[in-house]
Computed example of a mutant assay.
Amino acid sequence: MQWLLTLAVVVIGILTVRPMGFSGWGLAVAALLVVNSVALLARHLPEHKVADRPALLWLTLGVVAAAALIGASRSGSGYLFAFFLAGHIGYRLETKPALALAGICSLLCGGVLYFGLGPGHDVLSWTLGLATGIPVLIGIVNRSQRRAVVAAIVAAESAERAARAEARTAVLTERGRIARDVHDVLAHSLAGINMQLELADALIDTGDLEKVREANNKAHGLVRESLKQAQWTVHALREDSLPLLESLAAMLESSGHRDVLTVTGTVRGVPPQVTQNLLRIAQESLTNAARHAPGGDLAAELDFAGSSMTLTIRNRPATRAVTAGIGSGMGLIGMRERVALLGGTVTAGPVTEGPDQGGWNVKAVIPG
């Protein structure tokens, strides 16, 4: 639309401005018309390609040429160049220089008509010349609106980038949580199953079928235990909240430890995220106890203090032979990551004194 308007002004000027020729006064008018046309067409140059000072110089020369064309022509619509240039002055320049240059445009055009400089045309009043600077206000309004739109676009793009970064962080956090859950279910159980199957495979060559059956039965037992852990993992990955006390008691009982949970303090509601992470910490502790201290007694305590909640799981030394195996080393790391996400702390290590000496103790403290 702007291009069409610009071309329309140029065409109208060519058709109406007189005199026009290749010599004398007609040549001067033709030259001024060309200068005005170039100045008007230049307003379509991208802003980032024209600095402020060159733009001010070009628009100043355009204003002078527009006033000169009004005075030099005897008839026509040469004054349209002044109106359109004044409007672009308000759009291209800052407010103060734009108003100053628009005022100069009004004074030049009004003065040319008022003092009758050049041939002029009597049908135009000097007040029309003074009015040529008024479109600068429209240009200023358009510039303000454009800047507001640009600022809104920049703000929207910034908000979108922030949202993408936040979403990526959330995805990475969720991936880390799922990785810990997968480890808790698979790392210990699959390592134990693989070890028993390798043992059974090695015993086949010896012909000792009793030991082969024993290794096979242990592998089946580990599979059943893995299925139980998988069920707990599925529950933990769901969004709905599990009841902490009931779930913890059921987990202990399914691991072969009945009535070993002690609850102290005033029981209160627990956020779903805290419940899920405490259950996963308990599951990791029970898995480690079953693997490294088979047959040993186990005790669990859940303490609701005023500003924190503490889960403690302690197992005594093994009463049966411990089968050597290689763990992934990620269990304790997963516990620490879970507790760190909740702003708490976890300690895990051997018991060095008391009736449980030689056992293992895990203690997780969660604020809130």
Rank of each mutant, 00 (worst) to 15 (best):
E157W: 05
Q145A: 12
T266S: 13
A215G: 04
E225H: 14
T264H: 02
R168A: 15
I140M: 13
D259R: 14
R238N: 12
V270M: 00
R268W: 01
L172P: 01
V149L: 13
A151Q: 13
Q231P: 02
A167Q: 09
R175T: 07
R164F: 04
Q229N: 11
E157M: 10
V223E: 04
R168Y: 06
A200F: 05
L245W: 02
G207H: 05
A187R: 02
R164G: 04
L190F: 07
R143P: 09
A200N: 02
D205T: 12
E160V: 07
V150Q: 11
E157V: 12
R143Q: 13
A156T: 09
G256V: 00
L203V: 05
A148K: 02
R177H: 03
N216W: 10
A167S: 10
L203W: 00
T206I: 05
E174W: 08
P243R: 02
H183V: 04
V136Y: 00
D240N: 09
A151K: 10
R164L: 14
D240Y: 05
A202K: 05
G192H: 14
A200W: 02
V267C: 01
R258T: 08
D181Q: 12
E210T: 08
L248M: 15
D184P: 03
L252C: 05
V234L: 07
L186E: 11
V149C: 02
G192C: 06
V136G: 02
A165K: 09
E239W: 00
H235T: 03
I153G: 03
L203G: 00
L172T: 06
E210V: 08
D208F: 08
R268D: 01
A230S: 13
L209T: 14
V182H: 01
V263L: 03
I153H: 11
R213N: 07
G265W: 00
H257N: 05
A170L: 09
H220L: 15
L186Y: 11
V234T: 11
A167K: 04
R147Y: 06
L137I: 11
E210A: 15
R268M: 01
D205I: 07
G265T: 05
V150I: 13
A151P: 02
A163W: 07
V141F: 13
L248T: 00
A250N: 09
R146K: 06
A152C: 03
A159S: 15
R161W: 04
P243Y: 03
V171Y: 04
L237D: 04
K228E: 14
R224S: 14
K228H: 11
L190P: 07
R168G: 04
D201W: 04
T264V: 09
A249K: 10
T169H: 09
